[in-house]
Design a binder for these strands. Structure first.
Lengths: 337, 337
DNA sequence: TTGTACGCGTTATCAC
DNA sequence: GTGATAACGCGTACAA
């Protein structure tokens, strides 16, 4: 790795001049054209690459955004990560991606590593699990970091003092459930999610509220995991028990796709036999014409990246963009409606 | 951010001692129990976090693995990225994720940024596009880096001199096509992929070879993109033209799922009307019982991470693990067979 | 317009 | 066992 000094020597100038030409202050601190040219060619021939480590050390901050995702294989988080990466790149930032498996201890470990790398911001993509062991320690460490000047952004409900750019989970489920009811369905079930996961619990609240308002009994099923497989298994069980409802509100698109997979493969008609909808608006549901609450996931990532890159302070936190119902072909009015 | 010196002062020891206690050589360079304890408590109370930047600067290398993916939303790459992240973490490494959209220029930019951060290794997850502008420049820069000691690993066919841990794409498609033929299908089509993309071209070769061996005419369709939507559109067109084959070998699972989505939603029976299979073995196909060539994607990521973290040299490159046919419920013998 | 010199936080080499 | 101190590569006052 060629260093700045080597470049300077080859160009017969001082390191200061070389530095001014290659990194930054070429305008605020003028350098003659000739020297500029010779420095640049020297850098080119030597294949000079500035040391981000040295720069970070000197400037007390590095252009790094840390991303802590619950599961990078889940499209929900992958979309956020993508938005983060794209927007960060625009500002010359890079994203460091860490997986945490929804485990507070792992989150804490990753958080620490990210801080060690002087990340100027750290983004939590997933929500937390209420009362999970390690949550308190994580919160404590996050709060210390925040006070120390590290920008921390939560893109989902979190129990620590960070900047929040969060979608109203209660409202998403509430609105979606109301849509199902407006179609004339009465036996509307809510399916999937993780017990204790804030996002899940909030969506259930939204669903429950909508059901209560319609004076109907809520019915929450399959509260275990939230992937395609669990959607398939849960609906298979409902069918086996003869308890298939009129409509199913799924906690996310993954579960909904699992439901569709089972129903189609076993001869049921969607939406004739049952209406199905998800929450998220991720790519996975698109091809199936899934009705879903489209969430601005990529945009959430972008906002977080921009907030960090532009060194936002607590006062200029962007609001989460609105979500929107996307009516597909997996929902239809109830036959008796 | 508390520094080592602050910790040392609080503990009334020298920075040297503090360093020995907190980072590394506590054994090779003994420190008394008492001092160790006082240093640790001092670090704790100050919330000391070592500066990775300073360490990287001093040690001339940082525990960073750069990952350049073509599209993080594609499960194919997401699985690799996940394997990389998990294995890297085991060795105390972190992964920096960069998206490149299959654009050589973007790849080059990201590659450079990764080098600036002194990544000890950089992994390319996707294959290249033959003759794409910018490919030569990228290759040149990669080769410079490799000679400079940076470990570069390609997990897909690439035109530069890097370590390769690659699956035999020709064989995957060949084997899968042969399986379709063994079921008695004669009109077997190959669907999807990017024109010029090495992985696509190689799979087509495998497919063609198998068809030629059976003295059948190959039929490649939908060579445009390789996501679910393109699979849906392509098969819809086939149906509209009355050209639905006996069996479809898809370039990846995404395309295959798109095909299934269309067929199911429009009343076709899989595998009764047509057999469908994919390549990849990603999660997306699992819930549909998709027949697919299961590729060791996560494992590929792990191997790359381990190779870099253990500072492998050119002589101890691990071989790609074997792939395997997973027979699901989307393929069946031909009715006339 | 260019050069000199210091320090960012850490580790490693020497001395005690 | 422990403590000074010199680098690592860079940016930037301050001089010239």
């Amino acid at each position: 790795m060629a260093t700045l000094r080597e470049v300077a020597e080859l160009a017969s100038v001082s390191v200061a001049t070389a530095s001014r030409v290659l990194n930054g202050s070429a305008q605020s601190h003028p350098v003659s054209r000739k020297v500029q040219a010779s420095v640049r060619t020297a850098a080119e021939t030597l294949g000079y690459t500035p040391s981000a480590a040295a720069q970070a050390l000197k400037q007390q901050r590095s252009k790094i955004i840390g991303v802590i995702a619950s599961d990078i294989l889940d499209p929900y988080f992958a979309e956020m990560a993508r938005g983060l990466e794209i927007e960060a790149a625009k500002f010359g930032y890079i994203t460091i991606l860490a997986n945490a498996n929804r485990d507070p201890d792992q989150e804490r470990t990753k958080f620490r590593v990210l801080r060690e790398h002087q990340a100027s911001g750290i983004v939590f993509c997933g929500s937390d699990i209420e009362g999970a062991p390690g949550t308190a320690e994580l919160a404590r460490e996050v709060n210390v970091a925040v006070r120390g000047g590290t920008r921390v952004v939560a893109l989902a409900p979190r129990g620590f003092d960070s900047t929040r750019i969060v979608i109203d989970n209660v409202a998403t489920a509430h609105e979606l459930t109301r849509y199902m009811l407006s179609l004339g369905h009465r036996k509307v079930a809510f399916m999937g999610g993780l017990p204790g996961l804030s996002a899940t619990e909030q969506r259930i609240v939204g669903y429950r509220n909508a059901m209560f308002e319609a004076q109907l009994r809520p019915n929450v099923v399959g509260l275990s995991t939230m992937n395609q497989e669990s959607g398939r298994e849960t609906v298979a069980q409902l069918v086996a028990d003869g308890l298939l409802p009129d409509a199913i509100v799924c906690t996310n698109d993954e579960v909904a796709v699992g439901v569709l997979a089972y129903l189609w493969s076993s001869g049921y008609k969607v939406p004739d036999d049952v209406s199905v909808a998800g929450i998220g608006g991720t790519r996975g549901g698109l091809v199936f014409g899934l009705t879903t609450m489209t969430l601005p996931l990529v945009e959430l990532g972008r906002l977080a990246a921009r907030y960090i890159a532009t060194e936002g302070n607590g006062s200029d936190v962007p609001a989460a963009p609105p979500f929107e119902l996307r009516v597909g072909s997996t929902t239809a009015p109830h036959p008796n409606a």
